[in-house]
């Protein structure tokens, strides 16, 4: 049974979003990391890249699979968690601590389309 952090929003493609003012902090859920197995690489966008909701913004790689990271919101990338470059296993160890990027949101109303913790729990049940 995977863990679900209560105070976050979730996408159907298993990214989580923590809202901090106009900034969305994005990572992947415990369920996602469990499905992937040992994560070997995190492909991240560059700083200042514009990402749009529903499009890929990077990918997670494990030995035998890869999974696209799908942007839950649109906006500009203002920070990347560069520690993951060398230590991708942090996502396995602490999926809700190991954020991937921070995005300055272009349209906060996009958050409305995301799932809350209990709806996401239903999804991955």
């Amino acid at each position: 049974m995977s863990k679900i952090a209560e105070d976050l929003l979730y996408s159907e493609s298993h990214e989580w979003v923590k809202v901090d003012g106009n900034v969305a902090i994005i990572g992947v859920s415990d369920f996602a990391q469990g499905e992937m197995g040992d994560i070997t690489y995190v492909e991240m966008p560059d700083l200042d890249d514009e990402i749009s909701a529903g499009d890929d913004f990077g990918a997670l790689e494990s030995v035998k699979t890869s999974s696209e990271l799908v942007a839950p919101v649109s906006g500009k990338v203002i920070a990347r968690n560069d520690v993951l470059e060398d230590e991708p296993e942090r996502i396995n160890e602490d999926p809700y601590g190991a954020w991937i990027i921070k995005v300055e949101m272009a349209d906060k109303s996009e958050l409305d389309a995301l799932l809350n913790a209990s709806a996401y729990a239903e999804l991955v049940k």
Partner: peptide, 10 residues
């Protein structure tokens, strides 16, 4: 190694 780049996975 690094097979996640390759056609049989991606």
């Amino acid at each position: 190694t690094l097979q996640a780049r390759e056609q049989h996975i991606r």
